[in-house]
Computed example of a mutant assay.
Amino acid sequence: MYLNQISYSNFRCLEDGKIDLDRNFNLIYGKNGQGKTSFIEAVHFLATGKSFRTKKLRELFRYNRNRVIVFGKYTGKNNEENTMAIDVNEDRKDFYINRNKNKYIDYVGILNIISFIPEDIEIIIGNPSVRRNFFNYEISQARKDYLKSIVDFEKILKVRNRLIKEKKTGEEIYRIYNDRFIEEGVNIIVHRREFIRNISILLNLNYRKLFDEKSELKLKYECFLGETEKKSREELTEKFRELCIRKAERERFLGYSLIGPQKDDFVFELNGKNAKSFSSQGEKKSIIFSLKISEIDMLVKEKNEYPVFIMDDIASYFDEVRKKSILEYFVNKKIQCFITSTEDLNIKGKRFIVEKGKVKAYE
């Protein structure tokens, strides 16, 4: 799948435009501060409904405007052309596929996208919630049932916390919600366990192939239940239920849930050491890039389709040798790419120059 065209209105600093795109490479070129990152942010927002720069919708609006629209045409699995759009005002987002309004849960994963941006270093050095949010979205792109479990679990967790705070843990309503809390929690654990097991193998292979063939890179799933790898769903459920009983008194005292997959973490280990503490900045960047490539491999494996890939400011990340290796990788994979750069790149594809928010094709 790939994006054929994107149009946007009132998005950030960009001048309203409609841009025809290349099936493979799209280089977004220009000086700093001209709107290059805003352009690929619009591509990312169209595919995901989220910005990779902010959680505040208001920051996406051009100054003094109260509505943003991003619209795109994409080619689907069967080579048919479809449309997708997001219409945003100050209090809601509406999602459309082929001009029909859709729920967000049905919109996510229609056009899969993988991004590589400077902020991604937080996946290694940030707090556990950054990693949970990242993996939640990435797993959801490939598995709709995981996204449904995440959405349902968050609703259940809010009710469970309220019932604990209101001292209603002895009531039947709490028992019902606690059972659902355990059920959806185990669903999330099983999905995470399988995904991390599979992507960790790919992560190590890609890191060795692209950066250091002698290194060993692992991604570990640290579940709040402890070791889960060899446990069946029934055993996980029983262990979760036992932990709920053990923590019940402490939860009543504090007034909120102390356990659940909202407490999980994910750890990168390079050559047996935690990358957060022991890896260099260069190694961290290479780990994250290898992770993104592994995400592509996972999506191909699980959905039999290639995602769109966006990369912000490639020249600041990698030296010439690594940059060449990375570009060759994408050429061989035939993945649609959007790459920003302050310098021209010797690639076959479509070039766009960005000046004062105006994006235009150039030869």
Rank of each mutant, 00 (worst) to 15 (best):
Met1Pro: 12
Gln5Met: 11
Tyr8Phe: 15
Ser9Ile: 12
Asn10Arg: 08
Arg12Asn: 11
Gly17Arg: 02
Ile19Lys: 02
Ile19His: 00
Asp20Leu: 10
Asn24Val: 06
Phe25Met: 03
Leu27Gly: 05
Tyr29Phe: 14
Gly33Leu: 07
Ile40Val: 08
Glu41Pro: 01
Ala42Met: 02
His44Gly: 04
His44Leu: 04
His44Thr: 07
Ala47Cys: 10
Lys50Ile: 00
Lys56Ala: 05
Glu59Ser: 10
Asn66Ile: 07
Asn66Glu: 09
Gly72Ala: 00
Thr75Ser: 14
Asn79Cys: 08
Glu81Leu: 05
Ala85Tyr: 14
Ile86Tyr: 08
Asp87Asn: 10
Asn89Thr: 09
Arg92Lys: 03
Tyr104Pro: 02
Ile113Asn: 11
Ile121Cys: 12
Ile123Gly: 13
Ile124Phe: 00
Arg131Trp: 06
Tyr137Asn: 10
Arg143Leu: 05
Lys144Glu: 06
Phe153Cys: 05
Ile156Trp: 00
Ile156Met: 00
Lys158Ala: 01
Val159Gly: 03
Arg162Gly: 05
Lys167Pro: 04
Lys167Trp: 03
Lys168Met: 12
Gly170Gln: 09
Tyr177Cys: 04
Asn178Arg: 05
Arg180Trp: 11
Gly185Glu: 05
Asn187Gln: 08
Val190Ile: 11
Arg193Tyr: 01
Leu203Asp: 09
Leu205Asp: 15
Asn206Cys: 05
Asn206Gln: 06
Ser215Ala: 15
Glu216His: 13
Lys218Thr: 13
Tyr221Gln: 00
Glu222Ala: 06
Cys223Gln: 01
Gly226Ile: 00
Glu227Gly: 02
Thr228Glu: 05
Ser232Tyr: 01
Thr237Lys: 12
Glu238Trp: 03
Phe240Asn: 02
Phe240Lys: 03
Arg246Asp: 12
Arg246Gln: 10
Arg252Asp: 15
Gly255Glu: 12
Gly255Arg: 11
Leu258Cys: 03
Gly260Phe: 02
Asp264Met: 00
Val267Asn: 13
Val267Leu: 03
Val267Met: 06
Phe268Arg: 13
Lys276Tyr: 06
Gly282Leu: 09
Ile288Phe: 01
Ile288Leu: 12
Ser294His: 08
Glu295Gly: 09
Asp297Ala: 10
Met298Leu: 08
Met298Gln: 12
Met298Thr: 08
Asn304His: 14
Tyr306Glu: 14
Tyr306Met: 15
Met311Pro: 08
Asp313Val: 03
Ala315Ile: 08
Tyr317Arg: 15
Tyr317Glu: 15
Phe318Thr: 14
Asp319Phe: 05
Lys323Leu: 10
Lys323Ile: 07
Ser325Glu: 14
Ser325Cys: 08
Gln336Ile: 05
Phe338Asp: 02
Ile339Arg: 06
Thr340Phe: 02
Ser341Leu: 00
Thr342Phe: 00
Glu343His: 07
Lys350Thr: 11
Lys350Tyr: 13
Gly357Met: 03
Lys360Ala: 14
